[in-house]
């Protein structure tokens, strides 16, 4: 039994089950017809504006899905946003350019765009050449994309995915070309650069919520509602547990000590 299950991590199983239940509850509500009100996310709303601007100016839209492979959850999330951006460019008849640095991302992005263009009734406008492979090398890729941006002068740049030291190089090139830039990443240490150099930024969790927001799919929005329950519980824990810990330590109340021990064990992995 112990070879199959690590029973000492019961708390992790409990938390995962509770999180899953919250998401299931949100999705079930959406299937039942409940449509949650979602607050405005400025970065997501700016995407349509960016594509519209590119169409009016007759200049291309650039999309960079980060510099990581498909085994990074941010790249997977970026494919969802790419689908939405692809539908926008297909509807507007705008040229989309997407350089990639991984062969798997190249293959996945072509599939996503082909489906997007077909979904809006413009399969003839889709061309596999929209997505190109540059190099697996981080700075080789950045140098090439910077050159492409400088020459093609896109009106909109979407930097959506996991970025590292090349983030500012790409964002700065886009800003220099006068593009309206919408960035999104959950890579904490690159967010400051993108906030400084881009017009709109999807910060961390917003980046993962963007696809649900863009698609308007009730089930995905219901999933957001379930995730919000988890976040609200986390906020309550963040505010409540320090008070309990303090009471247990300063006042010496037994019940507070027991509650503290239970909650801290629940959170310990």
């Amino acid at each position: 039994m112990s070879n199959w299950f690590d029973l000492s991590t019961w708390n992790l199983a409990l938390v995962l089950a509770a999180m899953g239940a919250a998401v299931w509850w949100g999705v079930r509500g959406a299937r039942g017809g409940f449509r949650p009100a979602i607050r405005r996310i400025a970065g997501v709303e700016a995407m349509e504006e960016a594509v519209g601007r590119a169409t009016e100016l007759g200049r291309p839209v650039f999309y960079v899905a980060g510099t990581q492979d498909l085994d990074d959850v941010q790249t997977v999330a970026s494919m969802g946003i790419l689908g939405a951006v692809g539908r926008m460019t297909a509807r507007h008849g705008c040229n989309l350019v997407m350089p990639t640095d991984r062969s798997l991302v190249l293959a996945a992005a072509r599939e996503v765009l082909r489906e997007s263009y077909t979904a809006v009734g413009r399969p003839d406008s889709y061309a596999p050449d929209m997505v190109s492979y540059i190099s697996d090398d981080q700075f080789g890729f950045a140098a090439r994309v910077d050159g492409m941006i400088a020459r093609e002068k896109p009106a909109a740049c979407f930097l959506q995915g996991a970025f590292f030291a090349e983030s500012l190089l790409l964002a700065e090139a886009g800003a220099h070309a006068g593009a309206l830039q919408v960035a999104g990443t959950a890579t904490n240490h690159q967010l400051p650069f993108l906030v400084a150099a881009c017009d709109h930024v999807l910060i961390g969790e917003e980046f993962f919520a963007a696809e649900a927001y863009l698609s308007g799919d009730p089930e995905k929005l219901g999933s957001l509602r379930g995730q919000d329950v988890v976040k609200n519980v986390a906020v309550l824990l963040l505010l409540g547990v320090p008070l309990v810990v303090t009471l247990a330590g300063v006042a010496g109340w037994t019940w507070a000590g027991n509650l503290r021990d239970f909650v801290l064990r629940l959170l310990q992995t």
Partner: peptide, 14 residues
């Protein structure tokens, strides 16, 4: 998630 919350709340406020 869990480890971040644990590290934040474990010291208490005092």
């Amino acid at each position: 998630f869990l480890e971040q919350i644990h590290a934040t709340v474990a010291p208490g406020l005092w």
